[in-house]
Write a protein that binds this DNA or RNA. Sequence first.
RNA 1: GCCCCCGUAGUUCAAUGGAUCAGAACUGCGGACUUCUAAGCCGCAAAUGUUGGUUCGAUUCCAACCGGGGGCACCA
Length: 608
Amino acid sequence: MADKLGERNNALAQKIEEAREKSAMRRTAHGYVEREQYLLAMIAASLDLESAKLEFIDRTQFGADVAITVPALLKKGSKEYINEHLPKLLARVQKSVPVKEGWIVKAEQKGLYLNILLSDEYLFDVAIKSISELKERYGETDGRKEKTVVLDYSHPNVAKHLHAGHIRSTIIGHILRNIYEAVGYTAFGMNHINDWGGFGFLMEAYARWGNEESGYENKNDFLYSLYVRYRQMEKEAEQYDGGPFVEFKEKADARFRDLEAGKPEAVELWQKMVAWSLEDFQRFYDLIDIHLDVIAGESFYARRGGEIVEEALKAKTATIEDGAAVVHVGDEVDFVIRRSDESSIYATRDLAALEYRSQKLGAERMVYVVGQEQTDYFARLFKATDMLGIVKTGTVLEHVPFGFYVSSHTKKKLSSREGAQNVISLIESAITYFHTKYPELSDADIKKIAVGSITFNDIKKSRMGAVELDTGNVQKIMQSFEESGAGYVMYAATRARSIVRKYGKPVPERGEVRTKDMKLAPAEVLLLKRLAELPIAIVRASETNEPSVLAEYLVRTAQDYNSYYESFPVLAKDGTLLHPARLVITNAVVQVLINGLRLCHVEVPEKM
RNA sequence: GCCCCCGUAGUUCAAUGGAUCAGAACUGCGGACUUCUAAGCCGCAAAUGUUGGUUCGAUUCCAACCGGGGGCACCA
């Protein structure tokens, strides 16, 4: 394999492997945070209730802090559970160490639940302890340590512009990547750029109209103009039955075969064009400050894909139908894995990518963050993967779909032309908008607010829902970003931090807080339990592939804090400390909000 | 035609099959405030598309229907 394509792929393979090694080492070097360092897990462990479900409940409403149920027992019938098992459970809890040592003030049965009232001192102590000890790593857990996940997101198309859908994939994918890392995975974000399919057309177009290149400042715009031009020909061909497009297509297909064969001229031209597009996309990635671990486009997998198809045909797991290689993935459903002219198709490359990620990167889980319109495709791809034995047994393959950006006028998906409304200008508009509105803030803070508002807007609700954009009305779009919740959470964090900053001295250690100061007000009980929930929210977000779970949690936490802030002053006007415990809680709030927001790709500004 | 997703206050969204409250935000109406940042706080009003089924218990699961969106093989 001495051709240019082969050389290039070898170099890329090495880079991918290096990136993975680095990521795995980073994870193991700083160790994993054990689940048992957290409040609910500690209670469960000390009561020997591993299979039980524990959840925080409202003390003002239920007179208790934690409710316990045992789902396994519940299934067998509630009467049996309530009359037999629950009293036994209660007796066990009442004899346990936490009760003897006064961590649990009261344990009682209430209907289906075993309710536990914690002592204020214990609640304060444990919640604060884990936060102040773990600091920026508070929220992480070790549930998935030494597992590898590959996340596939962003995947723009070469020679086209990024559109709104790419933002969603990039943002949701990147945040999921952060979340997976927080639950212990070695996470690996891969940008599977479409840099292969349809390239024959582009190369033929370039051969014909490439001399117009100089008229374009942005080379990707030039490529896009080529795309538009041959698409136009194709459309006309559909209308007038062939025409000049027939010849164009023949030549284009020949060029694509040259490229797949690794012919130097073809590969060189292709590389040049891909670089033009990447340069353009990079502006977006830089602006939003999201950088995937590796860019390995479809081209990287094209060759191996061809071999996989051959092997499948030989093994008779794939057959030829109308000249194309297909896998029967269901009744009367054929999944095309190679075109009838024997060139590769996206499925060919996707199969090879699955194999690479499983065999070479050791991925135990693969997550595809791609729009909901491709649900059928991924179901078939995964079925075919299974039938051909492409990945190791037990590998989890998931398509994580998300809803479209829709026009708030028509409620319909933005057309690709509307979608092509420049993503970059959207971010720039946000920066201008916030600058005008809050002129006293620094450039750095404005950028944090603008980027944070955009990313949070994408994850504040469950990903399947459509995100409405008031197309053509920048002001309205900005308002929706402003109301997205990011500002609210950032604001809560900023004002909490300003209290800590104003105090100016190191925040007291929890050991320095006197027991009598740990007598908690209801708002503090609520807030501390909320703080203790961060790791739970992160785990749930990872299990459901739903960043909105974390976003919701952060908004609720900010709400609880804002409410607390109003009625519980920490410092006197001259800056002297009124109440040490409140300062400790405030400091913990700062840490929790910053940690949660960081996973959501939101940085807290210095000032708001 | 087949397949997928979504139907919850006027609007945009929450709610691992559970509690006495189906929670928020926006809008509307009404408040408080010379202590730490008002992008804030407090209060009032307002909702599970329809009909069945499973269950001790359904917004959640199942079926049908109604309404909205998306997809349907050699594009990605």
